[in-house]
Design a protein around this nucleic acid. Structure first.
Length: 803
RNA sequence: GGGAGAUUAGCGCAGUUGGUAGAGUACCUGCCUUACAAGCAGAGGGUCAUAGGUUCGAGUCCUAUAUCUCCCACCA
């Protein structure tokens, strides 16, 4: 017997535990049925989960449940991305320590400890949300298997010349003290001041130059004008004294990258203020003058400013420029500045030896585009973003990070010749700081310098298919299992995570990492506003939502709309899910109360209207399967829900008298309705269980399991109802529903109670045969004592009201 | 500057190959119907962003424009 009221808190905890304890979602390694493998994106351990995270997971989970119920053997792991900078910053913040002040081993120990507790809370949250992962298939991107996979990937790429080490200027975060990839940068609007300076020409006279960063003067290595600029092109080749550093003299060059109408039309090139400086420095083989060190302080070349923070130096330089009479104008401006996405610090360009992976040659870009072509994108429109990004790729992928908590590079450099020595693959994972190469260098030298950098998070999170498919241990197994069937992701990481995973799979396996890529939309806090940490901690905090509404209701909300589109979060929307849940509970309770004497044998005679509702279910079933097959879990849900309400409001109303009073309508009529109710309710529950797994499991276990035997409703296989469909009764049945609806409308318009009895109704139609067969149900639901039939155009007349 | 998406009922949305504008919700009117009043029945409500074009016919296709969101590039 179902409880009178559904207590979601109690039931959700109960079934969650049941699924875990009984391994309901466990991948079966020896099953012969086909596997459906999901490369679950390991969540980055960097704080608390919010509705945005869980929405993407839930949508993917619905697809996983769908495939499971299509008879697939699900490989649905849950890993965690907990190495690298994001996690390191989390540890620093939570433990109030600075990584660079501790020995690496100690920091790592603290980090692993903290990560374990975050993993657990993420896992709890994902379990509570009803995500059907196999928790035993997990991994951490910092664990041995992941490190081994990642290091093996690096060694292979380095030996093939695809990964290379080079000293080139790249974006640098002075706060995190590490290089960062250009994909990790964001734009921020900042207030600044345009300082207009007069630079002195060596031959006499001055030229005007505007700059927002006068502290870079000590690193000034050239002056640029546009060759087309008639005002200045006569100056090309002349020499200029650097203000405040007048012993330094630099040359004037012509380059078309200079905007004639920007600033004064004359630009100073410093190593390195921005990307253009880097390009000029390379092209004109300029001197390298580093004014800022890796911690954001001025270097020794800056004279009296050495040791100052760059922002303090800027103010000091401006004061000195003013008093020396260099500044003739200052304009406050707001300009956008590239900042590190993790800490919002404006980035600098620093030149350090770094490892890069080749990704951006025209030939390679063609390959990435071709791989993208072979991948199934859902929704298809998302591929355009990928193509646009690949076409714009202009830098190789930098994977070195001067940090502590990450996968080490398994490499040492010869102290004599500088050649790298790589660890043996069999020895991985290797930490070069605590071990030494097995062999001497080719040059005979036995002294090595270990690589102290660690790899960027992405270098490891881009090999999750290889981690999942056991590439490090068994390449043959991996080849069999790749490409995996599916990866799901937010659209913000198409350019980074997805592309890089595609690149690695191409280099290592020569295949795609996955066959299908599902790109979910974002949950917006309000029109055009992404969920921020601030909001995530208030009304969208996941634990509160789960406490207040339950997982089924949250999941219902997650299934709204077209797949891949952004959705706005609102509590309003949660009401709909609650309504369905409540109605489902009540309807099941009601229907099951008539099934206590149900016999699991098909009755000899099934009444036409009962046959009709089962045919109608099958019609909906087909649509639902179609929607899921197209990754439209929202439309599928709506389709099933519509049928459910139809079933309640029309079919149950039509047959409930038969169920109530077998002594009047006959045992045969009751059994026929029981058969239809059993089959329709069970099969609806199976499908609705994809969206609302908890309540459907409760109803299934309470009643259906005794007949169905399968351990959990989520392990049953979806199928249409086995019903006689030689004759399609849907149009005929719909006519009966229309008759009932006409009578209800009459009563409603006349402000009568729906149970009002009528002396008769007159039904007119071209063919009334089917309707006649449903007469007892029609009479019961309309309250008509008698039914008359006429032949002609369809019409329903309502007789006199019986007081 | 380049690219992607959006614009339909008060609101948040659906509308798949062009063929009479759809559900939900809110509002309104009724109904305590032997599951559910967090329910049921019924009604009203839209110049489909704007302007052109193709077509017998356009929410749908084409071209502009506007507004919003996102991505990329530039930011001396």
């Amino acid at each position: 017997m179902l409880d009178n009221k559904y207590n979601f808190k109690e039931k959700e905890a109960k079934w969650s535990a049941f699924w875990q304890d009984n391994g309901i979602y466990k991948y079966n390694k020896i099953a012969s049925r086909p596997t459906y493998s999901i490369d679950t994106p390991p969540p980055t351990v960097s704080g608390e989960l919010h509705i945005g995270h869980i929405s993407g997971f839930t949508q993917a989970d619905m697809m996983a449940r769908f495939y499971r119920m299509q008879g697939k053997n699900l490989y649905f792991p849950l890993g965690f991305d907990n190495n690298g900078l994001p996690t390191e910053l989390l540890v620093e913040k939570q433990k109030k320590i600075a990584a660079h002040t501790l020995p690496r081993e100690e920091f790592t120990r603290i980090a692993l400890d903290l990560v374990a507790s975050y993993n657990q809370s993420y896992r709890d949250m994902i379990e509570r949300a009803g995500i059907s992962c196999d928790m035993s298939l997990g991994y951490n991107t910092i664990d041995n298997r992941s490190q081994k996979t990642s290091q093996k990937s690096f060694i292979r790429l380095a030996k093939d010349g695809i990964a290379y080490r080079e000293d080139k200027p790249s974006p640098w975060c002075c706060k995190c003290r590490t290089s960062v990839a250009s994909a990790e940068l964001e734009d921020t609007e900042l207030n600044s001041v345009f300082n207009y300076l007069n630079f002195k020409l060596v031959d006499g006279g001055t030229i005007p130059i505007a700059t927002t960063r006068p502290e870079f003067l000590p690193a000034c290595v050239g002056i640029f004008v546009n060759p087309e600029d008639k005002r200045y092109n006569n100056l090309v080749g002349k020499l200029v004294k650097v203000p405040l550093f007048e012993e330094r003299v630099v040359k004037i060059y012509a380059d078309s990258k200079v905007g004639i109408d920007k600033g004064t039309g004359i630009v100073m090139c410093c190593t390195f203020g921005d990307q253009t400086d880097v390009e000029w420095w390379k092209e004109y083989k300029l001197e390298l003058k580093q004014a800022i060190d890796d911690g954001g302080r001025m270097t020794d070349i800056c004279g009296k400013y050495a040791g100052m923070k760059s922002i303090d130096a800027r103010n000091a330089v401006i004061e000195d420029l003013k008093s020396a009479g260099y500044i003739y104008k200052q304009d406050p401006i707001v300009h956008s500045v590239k900042v590190h996405e993790r800490c919002n610090t404006p980035i600098e360009f620093l030149s350090k030896k770094q490892w890069f992976i080749r990704t951006s040659t025209p030939e390679l870009k063609q390959i990435w585009l071709k791989q993208g072509e072979k991948l199934n994108w859902h929704p298809a429109s998302m591929k355009a973003r990928y193509d646009a990004w690949v076409n714009n790729l202009n830098q190789d992928w930098s994977i070195s990070r001067q940090r502590y908590f990450g996968v080490p590079f398994p490499v040492w450099y010869c102290k004599n010749c500088g050649e790298p020595s790589f660890a043996d693959e069999n020895d991985l994972p290797v930490n070069p700081l605590t071990s030494i190469p097995k062999r001497a260098c080719k040059c005979g030298c036995n002294q090595f310098e270990p690589e102290a950098d660690v790899m960027d998070t992405w270098a490891t999170s881009s090999v999750t298919p290889q981690i999942n498919c056991n590439w490090a241990e068994d390449e043959a197994e991996c080849s069999k299992r790749m490409p995996m069937d599916m990866r799901f992701a937010g659209r913000d990481i198409i350019n980074t995570w997805c592309l890089r995973t595609i690149i690695k799979a191409y280099y290592h396996q020569g295949t795609l990492p996955w066959k299908d890529l599902f790109i979910n939309g974002w949950v917006m806090a309000d029109k055009g506003i992404k969920i921020s940490k601030h909001l995530a901690n208030s009304k969208m905090k996941l634990t509160d939502l789960l406490d207040n509404y339950g997982a089924d209701v949250i999941r219902y909300w997650c299934a709204n709309g077209a797949y891949g589109r952004d959705v706005m979060f609102s509590d309003e929307g949660l009401k709909d899910g609650y309504k369905l849940l409540n109605k489902l509970w009540n309807a099941s309770k009601f229907v099951l109360s008539f099934l206590y004497d149900y016999k699991p044998n098909k009755p000899a005679k099934i009444l036409p209207i009962d046959c009709y509702i089962m045919q109608k279910f099958n019609e909906t079933y087909k649509k639902v399967i179609g929607q899921y097959s197209q990754v439209e879990m929202g439309y599928a849900k709506t389709e099933m829900e519509k049928f459910f309400y139809f079933f309640c409001d029309n079919y149950i109303e039509l047959v409930k008298n038969r169920l109530y009073k077998p002594e009047i309508f006959g045992e045969e009529a009751k059994q026929s309705a029981q058969w239809a109710c059993y089959n329709v309710l069970l099969n609806m529950l199976k499908i609705l269980g994809i969206t609302m797994p908890f309540v459907c499991e409760e109803i299934y276990q309470d009643y259906f399991r005794q007949f169905e035997k399968t351990e959990s409703i989520h392990l049953t296989v979806l199928s249409p109802i086995d019903v006689d469909d030689k004759q399609n009764l849907i149009a005929d049945g719909d006519k009966v529903v229309e008759i009932v609806s006409r009578v209800r409308a009459y009563k409603s318009e006349n402000k009568l109670s729906l149970k009002t009895e009528l002396d008769k109704i007159v039904i007119c139609d071209k063919n009334v045969d089917f309707i006649k067969q449903c007469e007892m149900d029609v009479k019961a639901v309309t309250g008509a004592h008698d039914v008359e039939y006429k032949t002609g155009e369809f019409d329903v007349e309502v007789g006199k009201v019986i007081e």
